[in-house]
């Protein structure tokens, strides 16, 4: 088991390295850079010579004229050796001062949403499979399909309206306006928790619906396997038969589906975050990409991809722990 984990962690290093290369190259692919658009803007204001001179200074300072490989080396060595992720042109601040709170909030939001999905989907999925074609199964199926069919941003708008008109909450954001820019206190965290439910429910609905279907289908397959009859033939109670054997084995499929859930959560969250005005990574990454703010964008892509690689690793380790067939081969 330990060698398995060590091996998987070692595999991560080349993966993350490749991601960083691809991320950096893709960011550099569009013609021009942030400075070109900055100069173009200032030229319209009439101060062409000064703008050109300033752009030239910045270009030399950040090495933008040099080949991509040199730029990449400068960026990646800064990250690895000094924890320096580069400089955001648009915000005129170091990238590291911008990202960490947003990454942390994204992580909290994703984790809470995943928990929400599990807590809702696992029991309903088990119920739906064990009582196939019962009224409860049909209700779960119908609600599930509705959840899958409604676009998240629409759901977000509906919940914002409900939150505003019924609960009198201010629209959007992860906490009330008076806390914006304030240091983290217990009050701010509590305030955030009261706001968190909207994005969690919005982001979790589709995932929950999908997972109920997956859990139900996998469990239905397992319920027909001969080992279930064996378990019953021992004299176990029906509840114990189902929980110990088919549910346990259906969990394997479930766990291996989890790495995908985090990916879809983080990428799917962008639109919802824009609609709900959440201080997560999505909107900032979108802005950075549109403004060709290369270091900020590349850093986000690198860190989010790393997060996904880690979550895949975690789900693989859990899978190996659950399933001896993986552990021993």
């Amino acid at each position: 088991m330990l060698t398995y984990i060590v091996r998987r962690v070692l595999y991560m290093i080349p993966t993350v390295f490749l991601i960083s290369v691809v991320a950096f190259i893709v960011i550099n692919l569009p013609p021009g850079d942030y400075l070109t658009s900055m100069v173009a803007m200032q030229m319209e204001e009439g101060d062409a010579a000064a703008a050109q001179a300033q752009a030239e200074r910045l270009r030399v300072r950040y090495g933008l004229g040099e080949p991509v490989i040199v730029q990449y080396w400068r960026w990646i060595s800064g990250i690895v050796l000094r924890g320096d992720f580069g400089h955001s042109f648009e915000w005129r601040r170091p990238v590291s001062s911008l990202i960490w709170t947003r990454l942390a909030l994204t992580f909290v939001l994703s984790l809470t949403t995943t928990m929400f999905i599990w807590i809702v989907a696992i029991p309903i999925g088990i119920y739906s499979a064990v009582k196939q074609y019962s009224i409860g199964d049909y209700v779960a199926t119908t609600v599930g399909f509705i959840g899958l069919a409604i676009p998240n941003f629409l759901l977000a708008l509906i919940f914002m309206y409900i939150g505003f008109s019924v609960f009198g909450q201010n629209v959007g954001g992860l906490y009330s306006p008076q806390y914006i820019g304030e240091p983290w206190t217990i009050d701010k965290i509590l305030n955030m928790l009261t706001h968190l439910w909207i994005p969690v429910v919005v982001l979790g609905t589709a995932g929950t619906a999908g997972l109920i279907r997956t859990m139900r289908a996998n469990l239905l397959d397992e319920l027909r396997k001969p080992y279930v009859v064996t378990a019953r033939s021992k004299g176990l109670t029906e509840r114990r038969v189902i929980m110990k054997y088919p549910v346990r084995i259906a969990m394997n499929f479930f766990v291996s589906a989890q790495s995908n859930i985090l990916v879809s959560l983080i990428s799917g969250a962008t639109i919802v975050s824009v609609v709900l005005n959440l201080p997560t990574t999505g909107p900032l990454l979108l802005g950075a990409l549109m403004a060709q703010d290369m270091y900020l964008a590349a850093t986000f892509i690198l860190l989010l991809s790393t997060l996904n690689v880690i979550s895949t690793l975690i789900s693989d380790i859990v899978l190996a722990w659950l399933d001896p067939r993986i552990r021993y081969s």
Binding site: K225, Y227, T230, T237, Y245, I249, D323
Partner: peptide, 28 residues
Amino acid sequence: FGSEIRAIRGADIALIFQEPMAALSPVH
């Protein structure tokens, strides 16, 4: 599903299946 039949299963009557690979749990 009653307790009487459960007391009989395994204690009075036991089953041996055709395909032990499928009839035994793969993860226990």
